[in-house]
């Protein structure tokens, strides 16, 4: 993963700053960097979103395809995640360099969404046991400046909000076989309920405190971090300790509590923003990638 090298003196400077609740860019310990979100940025997708969080840029595209439901859950569709670490972000990702990070990120996403409440998978079913919608969620990292997990999850929530799946109808032909009919009206589509989609909050332990939304420099000072994905109701769908250090049980409790608080407060403004953006409709000025 893209990493920066810091001298001991620089590390001490950051750690002491965090101790006094003051970070390099003037933020407090539980503040996010400036965040910009734009949805509907790629026309060939069914839903897309781009987020820039500080200098971290993530683009998410969602494509819906018709597939076969899994035999264990015949009346549900499913989501597939793929994270691509583009060589644009850092030269280390060239070739297969970003593969390990990509697999780690996508596995985490599977875990975050591995529950029945995040996305209503039953609404993705077309005919039980035969056809369902498969949502391919493709994440592209364009620029890495720390906190990939949080940026990625927010972008996915925005992209799922933006997703429009065409309505299909099942009809039987003369021979008794089933046929799928696509609606003629391109605006006749189904929306997903994204209310329960969780957002990931990563807390990095620095010294005796923890910070939210760590930059690469701050990450270099921390030996262990905790990733928590929180829904708008404050329930936790995934927790993972990351990094090569260990943590005191008490600090884990503190961090989960802080993660819940921060994560919960993330959802309402995000949803408001997404609805506001959508209400602008066609009048909205597109910013795109140079914004």
């Amino acid at each position: 993963m893209a990493a920066v090298h810091l001298s001991e003196a620089e590390k001490v400077y950051i750690i002491h700053g965090v101790r006094d609740d003051l970070r390099l860019d003037g933020r407090g310990c539980e503040d996010y960097r400036h965040m910009e979100i734009e949805t509907d940025v790629v026309s060939n997708t069914d839903g897309s979103a781009k987020i820039s969080l500080g200098h971290t840029d993530v683009l998410v595209g969602i494509k819906a395809e018709i597939g076969k439901p899994k035999p264990l859950v015949p009346n549900e569709g499913y989501l597939e995640f793929f994270v691509d670490c583009s060589a644009n972000a850092t030269p280390e990702f060239e070739g297969r360099g970003g593969e390990d990070l990509g697999v780690e990120l996508s596995n985490t996403l599977y875990k975050v969404f591995n529950n029945r409440l995040s996305v209503d998978l039953r609404s993705l079913c077309i005919s039980p046991g035969e056809h369902c919608w498969v949502l391919y969620v493709d994440v592209l990292l364009l620029q890495c400046d720390g906190n990939l997990f949080d940026a990625m999850s927010i972008a996915i929530k925005a992209a799922l909000f933006n997703t429009r799946i065409s309505k299909v109808q099942l009809s039987e032909n003369e021979e008794g076989g089933k046929e799928i009919e696509l609606s003629d009206d391109p605006y006749d589509c189904m929306r997903l309920d994204v209310e329960n989609v969780p957002c990931i909050v990563t807390l990095c332990k620095i010294g005796h405190r923890h910070v939210v939304d760590a930059t690469l420099q701050e990450k270099a000072c921390s030996v262990a971090s905790v990733l928590i994905s929180v829904t708008h109701r404050g329930t936790v769908t995934c927790v993972r300790k990351m990094g090569k250090g260990s943590l005191d049980p008490e600090s884990i409790f503190e961090m989960t509590e802080a993660g819940k608080r921060v994560g919960k407060s993330l959802h309402a403004p995000l949803m408001r923003l997404l609805q506001e953006e959508e209400s602008l409709g066609q009048k909205r000025q597109k910013v795109g990638f140079l914004g």
Partner: peptide, 10 residues
């Protein structure tokens, strides 16, 4: 010390 923690579900 807790060296590993993974949780999933809701």
């Amino acid at each position: 010390q807790v060296s590993g923690l993974t949780a999933e579900g809701d």
